[in-house]
Design a protein around this nucleic acid. Sequence first.
RNA 1: GCGAAAGUAGCUCAGCUGGUAGAGCGCGACCUUGCCAAGGUCGAGGUCGCGGGUUCGAACCCCGUCUUUCGCUCCA
Length: 494
Amino acid sequence: MATDDKDLFKKIVSHAKEYGFVYPSSEIYDGLQAVYDYGPYGAELKKNLKDIWWQSMTRLHANVVGLDAAIFMHPLTWKASGHVDSFNDPMIDNKDSKKRYRADTLIEDWAARLEAEGKPEKAQALVTEMNQLLEAENLTELRELIVREGISCPLSGTTNWTEVRQFNLMFSTEVGSVAEDASKIYLRPETAQGIFVNFLNVQKTARMKVPFGIAQIGKAFRNEIVARQFIFRMREFEQMEMQFFVRPGTEMDWYEQWRETRLRWHKALGIPAESLRIHPHEKLAHYANAALDIEFKFPFGFKEVEGIHSRTDFDLRSHQELSRKKQQYFDPELDENGKPYGNYIPYVVETSIGADRLFLMLLCSAYREETTGEGEEQKSRTYLKLHPALAPVKAAIFPLVKKDGLAEKAMAIYNELRHDFNLIYEEQQSIGKRYARQDQIGTPFCIAVDYDTMENDTVTIRYRDTMEQKRVPISALREEIGREVSAANIFKNL
RNA sequence: GCGAAAGUAGCUCAGCUGGUAGAGCGCGACCUUGCCAAGGUCGAGGUCGCGGGUUCGAACCCCGUCUUUCGCUCCA
């Protein structure tokens, strides 16, 4: 990343900490890598984002309903989903080139080379042996195999290898009261499986008809090999996923439709179109037949914020096989031949967005540094240009000075409006300083009580983005602010 | 995990050839203040990341360690 962008990102990270948005976890003990805590304003902002997502999914789409499934799930869930088998990569390092490889791909590449050299039997034997060792999770023998076959590092050309180590994606923990062999359970690495295992429960009890969707917000946990870029990649994070169940064969239409719907959603939050792009996946995960990322231009480059996957019937089908419970849906609608579509396992289109990445996107997109005036008069101003519906604090109320009853008047207004909006009352220091502080946490409106207020019950509203002021009657405040901070302003652009 | 750099007040940093820690901003109280980080007075806040060594004496020199940042490897 360019130096300017690096500086900008550093500023955003320290702004986040300095003004109560995001703190490093367990900071007094020197922190815990790749874990972060949300402060007062961060918690509000994140909650607002989750609310907007939840409402736009479940309220704006009549055929999408919500779910809140547990983080702990039966261990077989992760067998069915493929997480146990597909995301346990054996890693090995070459001590000379300092490069790290997946041991299995290293061996496979070597086998491909043998085959190219006209030794297909040898290549086949190598792969077979590797698979046996992987199956048995015998990492010591796997290393022996690499050394014995003289497999060398493509870069250094040496066979100076470290031990093979297992990198597990999933966090495991113990559940006390289940049978001994099943007592190891995992913290879910994605919320999606909670939706899949409840597919029929939801379909039957909420009387849903395909096509329909199930939305869920929840924590998920992944052991990343490197966890960097602030809250972009965390070990504990929050996902907002929606699994949309469709008739087989129609999945690509829905895939495209959700791509457009989700792209519109990001723009409605105030993200400029040029900061967003679609990145289709070349290499697909084991469960998908089409996948794309919606990427945002972070200071460290275009990176994924949301993923849209056509997951086929992979998940429901594997759950059906492993649980021996039918995951079928009977579709009574008639096809072109006048016959019902009948029983089938639905296909799934997934939209999956990281709440923390969304948060970071909004923070990066809202962060503004501006200088006003010239020469001696030059001043700089930092503010967060957040949509009023998302801003953590909706309005701040100040008395112009702390005497002549202005403070009491301002406090009365605060008390009257605090049930409707998240407000801050401040009377310390100069009013300019108070405006600046509110700008830094993105408060869209500041209400000042001055001497005119004492005469005619009007106050000034000062707008964060323009710093302009408007005089309004106290009685109009609730409606004035309410109109601006309403989530409907976002929904109407969807 | 490897390589590089950095850790001193809430933040940004200064601290000379080793002599027991400072500034600006911020924060709190009071005064002043008729609208964009104004001024004054007072105040809180630091075992200089941690452990060991050298030395009469270590923020400073040496060793170790932890954490963070950046690069490389993995990433649904």
